[in-house]
């Protein structure tokens, strides 16, 4: 800046990082370089675009009838339901209503209760990401339902709930009198992961159940935990939970670590 010739070019502002190759190892925004101490224009504006898209996706609700039809087409009894929330804006500010079924939905669900209570109930909920349900719920169920059948567990009708929270599954589980309720829900969309699915397992779910009674498998998506792997993880947790008669923080996930997570090989940073 202090050069004596005003026409002489200033040095390049953006200093790139030398470790861009490490981006192969993580979807995180590493090696962005810097200008001064700040984010280069290119990355700053790319972030703005990603945020605009993620914020927009939040406002799209699921069509439960269409999704229930997809499940029915696979031969799985399904029922389309709605939470007590009126619309998407209310969904964001009234979690209490998102945790309960609408009166009409509760009545509809009660009408399909069978004499023999199912051991397992699946509840598909849009949550904050319709895209997560549309992309990953079917692949997950395609892997999970045969496992349940092989284990001999009875499965209730699959509930598909619009504008629901995780705890809406408690009411479904209670009405169906299911031993274990498994909720598949669209997680809050991230900038780089708008379609992440969460899976929550609750033993003896009923209205008022709190989160310490649940086990969670999160980040279910192609770039995270693939749906089939998540189903295998759920299967392990289900066996444990059926065996011990509870779920939640007291049910520790002690399944062997997969080769990928165990490192399998050397860590590039520590050489160990």
């Amino acid at each position: 800046m202090s050069g004596s010739d005003p026409k002489s070019a200033l040095p390049a502002a953006v200093v790139p990082d030398r470790w861009e190759a490490l981006r192969e190892l993580t979807p995180a925004r590493i090696a962005l370089g810097h200008t001064g101490v700040s984010l280069p224009t290119k990355h700053h504006l790319a972030f703005q675009m990603a945020h605009a898209r993620a914020a927009k996706a939040v406002h799209e609700a699921l069509d439960p009838d269409a999704f229930a039809a997809l499940l029915a087409a696979r031969g799985w009894p399904a029922i389309a339901l709605s939470s007590a929330v009126a619309d998407r804006t209310e969904y964001l500010t009234r979690p209490d209503r998102g945790r309960r079924l609408s009166d009409a939905s509760r009545t509809a669900l009660s009408a399909v209760v069978s004499a023999e209570a199912p051991q397992l109930a699946f509840v598909v909920v849009d949550g904050l990401s319709r895209a997560a349900i549309e992309s990953h719920a079917l692949p997950f169920l395609d892997a999970a339902m045969p496992m349940a059948a092989e284990a001999g567990w009875t499965v209730g009708p699959i509930a598909v709930v619009r504008n629901g929270r995780v705890a809406v599954g408690d009411e479904v589980g209670e009405v169906l009198a299911a031993t274990i309720t498994v909720v598949l829900i669209g997680e809050r969309p991230g900038l780089s992961s708008p379609d992440s699915l969460g899976v929550y397992l609750t033993h003896g779910a009923k209205v008022g159940t709190t989160d310490e009674a649940r086990n969670c498998i999160s980040n279910v998506r192609g770039a995270g935990l693939p749906p089939a792997d998540a189903a295998a993880k759920l299967f392990w947790l289900l066996k444990e939970s059926f065996g011990r008669g509870f779920s939640g923080v007291a049910l520790k996930d002690d399944a062997p670590v997969s080769q990928a997570i165990d490192g399998g090989g050397q860590n590039f940073l520590t050489g160990r």
Binding site: L22, L25, T26, A28, A223, G224, L225, N267, L269, T270
Partner: peptide
Amino acid sequence: HPTDDPNGIAAVILD
């Protein structure tokens, strides 16, 4: 890291 991958985590630690 979305899958707890140790090398992916190490890449962010280095960054």
